[in-house]
């Protein structure tokens, strides 16, 4: 399946844009997504940490992804 991943903060600099598209297996999980992203964008691994949000909720590594999900990379937040 093809999924679009939104990027914010430093992730935009790492991806070189506000989103990237990836081709994933239909039963891909958040863990799989992070693995593939880190291969294509090794700089992700240098971040203190980062989360993945699915449909505006923080996701767990085992969560499954679906083509219509809104997926975003959430680098360390720094509001306030």
């Amino acid at each position: 399946m093809n999924i679009k991943i939104l990027a914010f903060g430093i992730a935009k600099d790492i991806f070189g844009g506000t989103s990237v598209n990836l081709e994933l297996a239909n039963d891909a999980t958040v863990y799989n997504l992070k693995y593939i992203l880190e291969q294509q964008y090794p700089r992700l691994k240098q971040l203190a940490s980062y989360m993945v949000a699915v449909n505006n909720e923080y996701a767990l590594p085992g969560d499954n992804l679906h083509e219509r999900d809104e997926i975003a990379i959430i680098p360390p937040v720094s509001g306030g």
């Binding site: 430093i10 240098q46 203190a48 923080y58 720094s78 509001g79 306030g80």
Partner: peptide, 28 residues
Amino acid sequence: IIDTLKQTVPIWKKEIFEDGEVWVAAHP
């Protein structure tokens, strides 16, 4: 509220210095 906001709300700030800029908290 302010302590938790700083941990969970997906807002990011970039500090602009005279000689560059930094995304706060991004790197260890």
